[in-house]
């Protein structure tokens, strides 16, 4: 396919999503051949077969790789032939953006509808209702909780939601 994986942010995105350094080399190798088996990849990079499979399944989960399998007549085991499908990256990003947008909107709603209290020892925040139950004392360290206004968090969330909405609209055009 004419997708140049070196072009744009493709490799960067893959690395961030999969979260493994070696995925870049694996993707390059997959892209250089029409099909490749997991065993060939494991031998090439001198990585355990299980680790290679884990990365390949992560790519598959994200629709960035596909496979076909054949049964080995001698051993009776399946041989998996893997192919990179980089063209699905646009759909993947679009769906991730939509999912994150939903998460941020839910969080914004939560922030807007609650009053928060924080522990001075950075043990975390809790809502007014939870703080009432514990007598405005931290559950973890017992320190008295203080009222933490969340107007800044709300404005950050609104800003990010707007940014994400704009990104999604640009892509839909």
């Amino acid at each position: 396919m004419h997708f140049d994986i070196e072009e744009g942010q493709f490799l960067e995105i893959i690395k961030e999503i999969i979260g493994e350094e070696i995925v870049v080399d694996i993707v390059k190798e997959l892209n250089s051949k029409p099909e490749i088996t997991d065993e060939e990849l494991a031998n090439k990079f001198d990585v355990r077969l299980n680790d290679i499979r884990k990365i390949l399944y992560k790519l598959y989960e994200n629709n960035l790789a596909s496979f076909r399998r054949l049964r080995d007549k001698n051993t009776g085991w399946y041989i998996f032939f893997w192919t990179l499908t980089p063209e699905n990256i646009t759909n993947l990003i679009r769906s991730k953006n939509k999912q994150v947008l939903g998460v941020l909107k839910a969080r914004l709603e939560y922030e807007k509808s609650h009053i928060f209290y924080r522990c001075p020892n950075n043990c975390g925040a809790c809502t007014f209702e939870d703080a009432m139950e514990t007598g405005f004392k931290c559950v973890k360290c017992g320190a008295p909780l203080y009222n933490a206004p969340n107007s800044e968090t709300i404005s950050i969330l609104e800003e990010k939601i707007e940014l994400l909405n704009n990104t999604l609209e640009n892509k839909e055009q």
């Binding site: 994986i5 646009t90 994150v100």
Partner: peptide
């Protein structure tokens, strides 16, 4: 339009949800 170079990966300043 579907070339990889057109893909915009905006993680909102490293928002953990994307990964």
């Amino acid at each position: 339009r579907t070339q990889v170079s057109d893909v915009l990966w905006c993680t909102l300043n490293h928002c953990p949800c994307f990964t």
